[in-house]
Design a protein around this nucleic acid. Sequence first.
DNA 1: GCTATTATTGACACCGGTGACAATCTTTTT
DNA 2: AAAAAGATTGTCACCGGTGTCAATAATAGC
Lengths: 363, 363
Amino acid sequence: MGRVSKKSQIDFAAAARRWHESNEDGRKPTMRDVADLAGVSKKTVSRVINESPLVNEATREGIKALIRDIGYRPDPQARGLASKRSFLVGLITDNPTPQYVVQIQHGILDVLRPTGYELVVHPCDRKSDTFLEDAKRFIEVQKLYGVIMTPSVSEDERLAEITRELGCAYIRIASIALDMERRMIVTNDRVGGREAAHHLAKLGHQRIAIIAGRRSFRSAHERRAGFEEGLAEHGISIPPEYVLQGDYTFDSGFALGSEILDLDPPPTAVFASNDEMAAGVLQALHVAGQTPPDALSVVGFDDFETATRVWPRLTTARTPARRIGRLAAERLFEFDKDEAVAAGPNQTTPRLIERDSTRRHKT
Amino acid sequence: MGRVSKKSQIDFAAAARRWHESNEDGRKPTMRDVADLAGVSKKTVSRVINESPLVNEATREGIKALIRDIGYRPDPQARGLASKRSFLVGLITDNPTPQYVVQIQHGILDVLRPTGYELVVHPCDRKSDTFLEDAKRFIEVQKLYGVIMTPSVSEDERLAEITRELGCAYIRIASIALDMERRMIVTNDRVGGREAAHHLAKLGHQRIAIIAGRRSFRSAHERRAGFEEGLAEHGISIPPEYVLQGDYTFDSGFALGSEILDLDPPPTAVFASNDEMAAGVLQALHVAGQTPPDALSVVGFDDFETATRVWPRLTTARTPARRIGRLAAERLFEFDKDEAVAAGPNQTTPRLIERDSTRRHKT
DNA sequence: GCTATTATTGACACCGGTGACAATCTTTTT
DNA sequence: AAAAAGATTGTCACCGGTGTCAATAATAGC
């Protein structure tokens, strides 16, 4: 290493000046231009762009400086055409909560931005019968570098299989590991459920209801299981009539919230498996003329914006969506890396945020 | 027209069969394959793909059928490289309300989906000093087919100018026409403000306050102007001390909501220029132990999800965000069309949704 | 029937990069 | 000092389309 070839004698700064002078018409430089100015072949410039180690140190630095000076940007389309992949990352979602989706997008972009990769969004409907075809076409036609999937599509084995078959990198965001560890970002919803349980138990609640989430979401099971485990640690169990089946929507929370009021004896607290449903419960209480948390303590899950908009503000387990997006994007770029290489974190744990929707049970 | 050339004697169905038989390894067909099977040149296939009228009717139909049969998809990268543009549409946003952004995204995708164009999201920070450069690079490097901008970046003349200079199609979403009509989607916020005013006036309110939106948003001025106009029609004017300056955030609504309570005499109704601030006002009332709408009628603006999550549910002027997204995408594809050609609609008008946060003023 | 005109199609270079492999230059080995 | 090995760079075809312009086919005009 460190050898100084004749080529390195080239004055890169002068080359840049030359470019600026001869380019009064403001043409965008191509790799050809860079190569000519630097007195090397396109291939060498290409190597510099792609961080290939087979380039002389001095040459590399000179070319890099030149590229910076004249503002050269490789054309992603040409790169993609030649290398049979694009510089696009797809985000496949079917989550109806805008706050979640946008946070995830921002998280992903935090990582993508400096890399030059771009994010293409692809909401879908898992129930559509062309959903798998559509996704496949999307990945294949755009030759996506990678895809990130959120619940509940992320839990679809067929979609994961298709992505694998296409040789596309992917990261699945979910509440349990459904795949090789480094292809998952796992949010440990079970712990969140457990914390919610501890919180209510510590406040002295005994008669506790739960509104479960949509069955087709793994998170619904995890949250519920965690919650029940947590209560069990305090010797509390949930009787069957206190288990209500929701579907993660505000409307279901509202409907079930009204039902809770008719229970006899009524519970003193309820764990709604997400904020939307928790907000629905609060609204049902208000409509019935009750005042939470006096009438009923309510715990939510997610800590999206809704949690702080409602009254009383929700005590809830925070899902760090932006961070999840960030991790997903980071892991995506390590997709092919050796498993042995120390991978970054791929786990997040919800943390309980205590607010006003829960209070000590008066015995 | 209607001439039957010898070429049309080719049996396209047989060609498709031939392909399926000889392609047991599942290779994706290219334009070369289609052309060879059809016995025509690549250029002719290219013409069919691009809906060129200079192709014989029979040839066109045959090739189309063949393309369908063997599942050929033109490669957007190759197309882009050759034609110096991509099949990507950029969405440049700096609106902090996730519900708005996601709705817009969905609206745009409603239109894009069947076309094969894809949506690349690009949130930005107008206050960043590299914001313009970044946007320019984004458009230039990706060779975007077009961009759609939402408030408040849509109101930035410099950004519009840059986009124009790059020869990129664009649509600006805003509350007033800042540009040629067919390059705008205008939401007539003034009318929304007016309707809010009429609503409150009809309910008998006289002492009415307003929480204005962030000054750097045109919509803030429009909403306020419309509201004041509307009140004026009922002979009502807003005294200076009833005009509060918010910034469209929940927190500002909360803070100003508290202030309202200290006003002497207190207003009986308030128009918050968006739902977030309206929600803030409601929360401030709750914290103060007041019960809206008895204590204070509150009108919001937007009708995003928050409006129905809070208690009481907000009376608010609906911004049809998804429809706006749809219109924007539709107009984008007509960007170069002759002005004389009857353009589709590019206006939307908010509609007041009456809910529970307003009530008749008891005199 | 022959030429002018229009409809339809094709040839070929090129868009801006990368892959595979060959060539050249240095340094090390013997 | 020649051969072997390693480092560095270059050559050239090709990725899958489109633009330009020429070529061919079919109909119209006289």
